[in-house]
Write a protein that binds this DNA or RNA. Structure first.
Lengths: 179, 179
DNA sequence: GATGTATAGTGTGAAAACTACACTAACTAG
DNA sequence: CTAGTTAGTGTAGTTTTCACACTATACATC
């Protein structure tokens, strides 16, 4: 009774996985009559985006078996939860082009190849390397960290960081991210 | 207990205004703690788009004073309903460019000027007449009805209709509406 | 230390899309 | 028949998009 929907979503996520301080957004509210055969249940679904490498899962109270699964190899889900996931993936794909949410899925420091690979995976299409780099760099939303990858057995790539401040500022002036 | 959220939204709209058979979509679910000072209320909001001229309001059971109001001249709204409306307008503005929802707000038969005027109103910017026509016609989603306006005191404009079938078909092939 | 292997990083030209811009056409009212 | 109102149309310059292939750098291995 004393927390908002978003607060509740954040709390549940924390309780079940230990994850905090991430991008979280309302997805959709599912309210069909027979979703759960036992009872009438309305679900306000939220989705989170997260850099998987930076977050260890610590299953705590509710779920003792929280774990990562590739989208293509999910275990069976309860009720209509596969439908919820489908809606979430569609939302991610739809939003990736028009909002800089891809960065939520990468480490703070990332290479352009990592970013491109992320886009290719989510959008399910290949992108031209030169054109991709040209476009993303021309937005001037990436900070060149003057650092390179470590521990790779080939030419090390430069590391970049997303400039959130500048994006917030440009957005106020009517700028639209589009990739 | 026996109707989905969407069914409930459609029923409420019908009961309060007599309006049926229109575009209706879930907007957002509002669940802050103190939205309604009397009680904890979670609202799953839906928004509808409608050709105002084609629908007479028939206030029936619940609300005896259903009426049209210009967005800029609304009466005071209860609770956080102004916030809900703001979210709805933002959604409309955001969606207008990428989905052909503008047609929901016009009569079935409309002129290009009407369509342009609608876009200009919602987007709050002026558009060039020639460029607008070029672009919308190049999508080949409008059916030329070979009819003209009636009862206007100037040159009568041609009437068009949105080709929903063709759009559905193109969409499956990966076409994206954008204006 | 030479060679192989893997990924990083870079430029150009053709085609397409976008933008800015002003006049004539058609109809009605008076 | 004239005035007033909106419909309807084309072009040239600029920008953006797209397709495309080679060199650079780092490490591993022999």
């Amino acid at each position: 009774m004393d927390e908002s929907l978003e607060q509740a979503a954040l709390r549940e996520l924390r309780e079940e996985t230990g994850i905090t301080q991430i991008f979280l957004e309302q997805l959709f509210t599912f309210g069909d009559v027979d979703r759960d055969p036992r009872d009438r249940v309305v679900t306000v679904a939220y989705y989170a985006l997260i850099d998987l490498n930076a977050h260890q899962l610590k299953a705590t109270t509710d779920a003792s078996d929280a774990a990562w699964f590739p989208v293509a190899k999910l275990p069976p889900l309860a009720f209509d939860h596969d439908k919820i996931l489908t809606v979430a993936l569609k939302r991610l794909k739809g939003k990736l082009r028009y909002e800089p949410i891809g960065f939520e899925l990468l480490p703070k420091k990332f290479t352009l190849s990592q970013l491109q690979h992320l886009y290719e995976t989510v959008l399910e299409e290949t992108l031209d390397k030169r054109n991709f780099r040209k476009k993303i760099l021309s937005m001037e939303l990436l900070i060149d960290l003057n650092e390179t990858e470590k521990n790779v057995s080939h030419r090390a790539a430069k590391l970049y960081q997303f400039d959130e401040q500048k994006y917030a500022q440009l957005k106020e002036q009517g700028f639209n991210f589009e990739l």
